[in-house]
Amino acid sequence: MNNPTVDRTRFRYPLRWRVMDSLEEGASLIWPRSLSRHTGWLLLAPALLLVGILVLGLVQIAESSLHTLDTSTYLPSENYTGENYLTIVESATYLRILWRSLLGAALTVVFTLLLAFPYAYILVRTSSALVRKGLLVILFLPFFIGQVVRAYGWLIILGNSGAVNEVLGLVGVEPIRLLFNYPAVIFGLVQYMLPFAVLLLAPALTAIPQEIETAAGSLGANWLQSLWYVVLPMAKPGLIGAGLVVATLSLTDFAMPAMLGGGSQDFIANAIYDQFFRTANQGLGSALALVLVAIGSLIVGLVFMIFGAGTLGMGAKK
């Protein structure tokens, strides 16, 4: 006689539940609930370790910067010495390269912000969704295409037989050397930094209510006045954030001086690269790298101290 009632032992515990339960058990085994006060640290640990590789790298650079290159054996010296740093400070070449990089970074910041501000402003203020989308796509494409391909494009455009010189030739102008000089490097840096600057500026402009500008206007300010006295001061966190990122990235850039400067317009990063891969003077290269890290941190630290972190604070907004 068949029993019609459901056979309870045949009930299948769903696989998903079993997986979850065993995961749960495993979790309790590895990380008992009594430790849950420290779960935050557990979750943070992998990131701390991963960034640790970078810290380890800096330690290695510091260590290697204290050995000079023995020119007779081409091996780093055994004893510790600060001689590499002395070489840098005393060398006119490195001071010139350093000055060129710092000036380049400053010029890049000025030009980039000049172009990025109106771009971000229209991006935020335009009433047309289509214009906004178009501007965003134009901004993101180069960001994702990458430095090398963009520099390659500029080499084609600005080369001696490139598009610009062809056009100039049509109106009877002799080819001009547009590449491999300082302005070419600055231009390359500006076009490379533009998306970064706009993306850092835009949120700061979004935070300024349009009504405030309207109010300034209704109180008799023309657009220049309301820009100068209202919008720019309120956009300061964004301007600082964008300026800082642009400054540090262009100060330490390698690709633009290398590709659009053609070896005659080296920045610090190029000098470091040459020490490692051309001269094989690892100690001097390391010392230069540390000097660059120090200058970068100094600039960031100074700006943070004077103006605050701007829009660059991370995570801790609860």
Partner: peptide, 19 residues
């Protein structure tokens, strides 16, 4: 955690090369 952004790429790159 912001070190990857504040340390110049040439510095992080060479450091990791050594490591």
């Amino acid at each position: 955690l912001l070190l990857p952004f504040t340390v110049p790429l040439i510095g992080s790159g060479i450091g990791m090369m050594l490591v």
